[in-house]
Design a protein around this nucleic acid. Sequence first.
DNA 1: CCTCCTATGTAGCGCTCGCTACGTAGCAGG
DNA 2: CCTGCTACGTAGCGAGCGCTACATAGGAGG
Lengths: 186, 186
Amino acid sequence: MSVRDNRREAALERMADHLLLQGLSGASLRPLAAAAGTSDRMLLYYFKDKDELLTATLGRVTARLAGLLDDAAPGQKPFATLLVELWAAFRSPALQPYMRLWIELAARAARDEMPHRAIAGEIADGFHAWAADRLQVEREADRLPLAALLLATVDGLALLDAVGRGGMADSAASAAAAARLPRPQR
Amino acid sequence: MSVRDNRREAALERMADHLLLQGLSGASLRPLAAAAGTSDRMLLYYFKDKDELLTATLGRVTARLAGLLDDAAPGQKPFATLLVELWAAFRSPALQPYMRLWIELAARAARDEMPHRAIAGEIADGFHAWAADRLQVEREADRLPLAALLLATVDGLALLDAVGRGGMADSAASAAAAARLPRPQR
DNA sequence: CCTCCTATGTAGCGCTCGCTACGTAGCAGG
DNA sequence: CCTGCTACGTAGCGAGCGCTACATAGGAGG
């Protein structure tokens, strides 16, 4: 591995930190470079342009989150349990930055084209698969829809939290946990 | 009403259009001015600065949405019904821009301070109240939490839609509609 | 008629953005 | 020993940003 690749790698980790703290809006080349202990000139030496840099850095971030999530909610659980555990995890200071960043990414995905849209779609798919894996369902046919609902609910709660309505999100989370989810056959 | 106030009013309407089409990221003074048929210079004559301008324009947008929502889902409905009607409405081309804008606003609210954070909080409260008003519940104690859950769910679905996973959102919406929401006392 | 105030244009400031052109120190290989 | 490539610094470009200084035409009011 060349010197360049080593430096690039180190920069990626530091930039992932910066991205989580400051968000996409604070992710312009010069601040990122400062956080990584280098110069904007060098960032564009390590990466061909800002899109490539952002894609790589966001990849780092999602890899970290994947690890954290496995720790936060291991094993298979029914919907309600998984939801409250996930929501508790995402309200913690350790995971909150990830959700903030995810919302920011989604907002750009809704407007821009690349690279945000593509990245955001992949992340959504990844966590849909993650949720489907961890859900314990009564009928197998419910697995994917319930995983999607879990994803949507956590995202919605996070969005309320993001606008300063964490209390509202908590009460919504309780209501959701109290619901009986698979449709009872009558 | 002075000439200035008239022009200011007209500009507000055109800028609300522009904001819905182009989003917050496209809302810099010169493009907004072009959309309003005037100049950046005049916008800052009508409004003291960009914050005031944005606040006023977003106020216009939410007022429009409030009207549209009353048309889309009049009367009182149980949770599941209200959810599917709301979700259908927000997937329509007429309402989709509002949700996109709302997500963008939430993303900024999570980072910035004013004016985004304050505005976003008020909007959330407004629609929480709207939902509480239109929900038909079995136990009155469930009204506010269920309204919050409705808000969160629709927001989460919209977020999935924003990242290009509309299909996933639809299946989540069906799963949610199939759930039994007020906890059955055992 | 003269004066002042409102509405508006023109020009530009200082800043940040992504990106690039250019130069060079230092080391590896022929 | 010379050549050439990797790794980096310095400087700057053109564009966009929010905002402001300055000038002025034209109408309203004394």
